[in-house]
Design a protein around this nucleic acid. Structure first.
Lengths: 243, 243
DNA sequence: CAGCTCATGTGAACGGCTTTTACATGAGGT
DNA sequence: ACCTCATGTAAAAGCCGTTCACATGAGCTG
């Protein structure tokens, strides 16, 4: 019984009672500390106070545990994105930018989930449920892009919503994985990852012809402006005072 | 001697003669097949035809081998980017887009290097040489952005080159890691990763005020156009016929 | 060429991990 | 009270990373 951690609150009998949940929780802790590679099945078992073989009653193998975590991550991710999108309130562009921020916030606040979702190296085709969860999360971005595309200024060609969604996703994921987590490759940045992503998305939207003026005192964007935002009052651009 | 692979061409004596190189090569093979997590030190030793302890004469531990590969990857990466950039010939915008393509091509053609560079989960601060190599590669993108920023159309605020470089990097990395490798999470895309990235960069540049017209018969972009490319002849936008 | 030295490779061993198998426990239904 | 089956344990096999004492022989020195 050397594996028995005495730290466990409640004395438990032969059966744990809630092992599956305990293992998922323990795995989350471990992954956030040591990355998905450093995480070991045995460690999770130890942390849950059971023998190294016990987890096999709940997960076929180590990969299935990680896949479960990734799936759960996508579900929480979907929730966060849904909440950020808030069905496009108060206006489409504002809500859209909020989605970008939520993406980054999730990567930062849930690095374990994020790692399991995007950096675990699992074959995505092997797990239909996992893939479906991922697609549901992406569907939020896709729906937001759809609404945004519908507002494309008249006179300009309407951008395909799917393409916009993929672009936004790649920007968010790129910023998140390169600069998003404290542990990850932190380079000296002239601005925060959040500001970086916000500027990127704004410039991109402007490239599509959306007006992106957002001064504090400004009236809400009419969304049917002239194709570009090049008019008086815009002198700083979407970036701040980056050196 | 059960580990001795008879497949080795030349019969060798007690000493391998070129073990370090052989290990790096073997590791590349293995990583491209099974990802950086699936790669094992012992496997590399087996493949090189030496005992499992031999690699320790050349690498402090497994992580150092992976770091060596990552470093080498950044060096090759820098070469490819430099070549693609070609000092901005024949014109800055064309060369800039070529850099984006080269980024993606590297991720696709050298998945093992790419994994080691960006997905190995190594602490970047622990290895100065590795970090330096990474920064040299990024410097190419940065230099290209610098040249591009200098050509910003007059009348618009000049975008900070560092920010542009970070944006381009994050787009490229985002597309590459989400859609770039055959093995990686391949979702059904309406267009290739290459086209996706190209459109993304073009839209972004247009958002900065650069003219991005690139029809086959068109004259080389004058680069001092009116702020936006919204003029006759532009009716399809940077995307193709995406559904 | 003889001899020395040290980089490089070997064998064996330790501890840890993953996974399997036979067995133990006890919660919940009959 | 009894049975059954999900859940947990113990033990073992096989792999890996890593270390250490020892073997080999390439290359220098004289």
């Amino acid at each position: 019984m050397s594996w028995r951690k005495d730290q466990g609150r409640s004395e438990r009998g032969y059966h744990h009672g809630n092992l599956k949940e305990a293992l998922l929780q323990a795995a989350l802790d471990l992954i956030s500390k040591k990355g998905p590679a450093g995480f070991t099945f045995a460690d999770a078992a130890r942390m849950a106070g059971v023998s190294p073989a016990a987890p096999y009653r709940h997960f076929r193998d180590r990969d299935e545990l990680i896949a479960s975590i990734a799936q759960r991550g996508f579900e929480q991710f979907e929730q966060q994105l849904t909440q950020a999108w808030d069905d496009g309130r108060p206006d489409t562009v504002t809500a859209f930018e909020r989605v970008g921020k939520a993406y980054l916030a999730f990567a930062r606040q849930e690095p374990a989930f994020y790692s399991a979702m995007f950096e675990s190296g699992l074959p995505p085709d092997a797990n239909p449920a996992l893939m479906a969860a991922g697609e549901r999360a992406f569907a939020i971005i896709r729906a937001a892009a759809e609404r945004l595309a519908a507002l494309a200024p008249p006179g300009t060609p309407r951008p395909p919503a799917m393409m916009m969604a993929l672009h936004i996703w790649s920007m968010s994921h790129g910023v998140a994985s390169l600069f998003g987590r404290g542990d990850a490759a932190r380079r000296k940045l002239p601005m925060s990852a959040e500001d970086l992503l916000e500027a990127e998305v704004l410039i991109y939207l402007r490239g599509l012809g959306f007006p992106t003026d957002r001064r504090p005192g400004a009236t809400p964007p009419p969304l049917n402006d002239k194709p570009t935002g090049d008019k008086a009052g815009e002198k700083a651009g979407p970036w701040g005072k980056a050196k």
